[in-house]
């Protein structure tokens, strides 16, 4: 409030960032539509990552120089909080899809209720979840499903444990116990990495043994949509926390000034909560 709010002069990263995003998206589009241009996609992706690196680097440098006051800190908090809210809504669309298909679309295809007329399309269709036999015979459904009480349960334990270890690390940082914070953060990262490995194994089994694929009808579609985007978010979270570990090792962060760490923790807990929803509604029920 004292007029010390830091307004950066100019920066080349935002403009370069949008050019990089454009390059990446054009590359992805050309790859998907024309089957060429993976070089453009690769270059664009590298450019996006590079811009993120340098942009965040500038922010870290400014923060280390003490240019940010308490008001700036609040701006970051609001910013991160609302960003996570946007992510919540992103996943809400996918969970909404899952519920809609299970509660409305499939029973209606089976002839139930006011929309029962849809049963005329495929009279032999019987609704079930998981949907093993999609209405159209040209689409072959999964042969089997992933049991929730094997790998998914292990992964649930990994993620829940990682949220706890991350909180321990955070509390240690707030107490000024840097070595403890570092160690528990390493444990958190290890748990996150284990999750990703297990998820990879599960995907492999889903494709090779269970016939759960992207084109196995709506079950495969929702399965990979939800777990895939969640897995991507875990990956982002692991990278974020790895950067935080690097910063702890470099001596950054103090007891009461470590919002980057806290923001990463918020994000991690969010990803964890999404997984609980996934575990319950994609795997168990």
């Amino acid at each position: 409030m004292s007029g010390s709010y830091y307004v950066p002069e100019t920066s080349k990263w935002p403009a370069l960032g949008s050019a990089a995003v454009g390059l990446m998206m054009i590359g992805m589009g050309v790859v998907l539509v024309h089957g060429v241009g993976s070089l453009v996609l690769g270059l664009g992706t590298v450019a996006v990552l590079a811009v993120m690196w340098f942009w965040f680097r500038d922010v870290v440098i400014e923060s280390r120089q003490g240019l940010y006051d308490a008001q700036m800190d609040r701006s970051f908090r609001w910013g991160m909080g609302w960003f996570i809210f946007s992510e919540v809504m992103f996943f809400a669309a996918f969970f909404g899809t899952l519920y809609y298909v299970r509660v409305f679309a499939l029973p209606w295809l089976d002839g139930e209720g006011a929309k029962g007329i849809a049963t005329l399309l495929w009279p032999d269709f019987t609704a079930s979840w998981p949907l093993m036999n999609p209405p159209d015979s040209s689409i072959s459904g999964p042969r089997d499903i992933v049991s929730p009480w094997q790998l998914p349960l292990v992964n649930t334990l990994f993620l829940v444990a990682s949220s706890i270890t991350l909180t321990v690390s955070h509390e240690a940082l707030k107490e000024g116990l840097r070595a403890t914070a570092r160690n528990w953060l390493i444990v958190t990262l290890a748990l996150g990495a284990c999750f990703l490995v297990v998820q990879g194994v599960e995907y492999y089994e889903a494709y090779t043994h269970y016939g759960i694929t992207l084109d196995a009808g709506i079950y495969g579609s929702t399965f990979f949509l939800l777990t895939g985007f969640h897995g991507f978010h875990v990956t982002v979270g692991v990278v974020t926390l790895a950067v935080m570990l690097g910063r702890i090792l470099k001596g950054h962060f103090s007891r009461d000034d470590h919002f980057a760490f806290e923001a990463g923790a918020w994000y991690w807990h969010f990803v964890d909560v999404v997984w609980i929803g996934l575990f319950l509604f994609v795997y168990v029920f």
Binding site: T97, V101, A105, L106, L109, A118, L121, L131, P134, P135, D136, S138, I139, L214, D215, G217, I218, Y219, G220, S221, T222, F224, L225
Partner: peptide
């Protein structure tokens, strides 16, 4: 995928 394709259950 078959999100919007009734033939796949969407």
């Amino acid at each position: 995928t078959s999100f919007f394709d009734a033939g796949g259950g969407g």
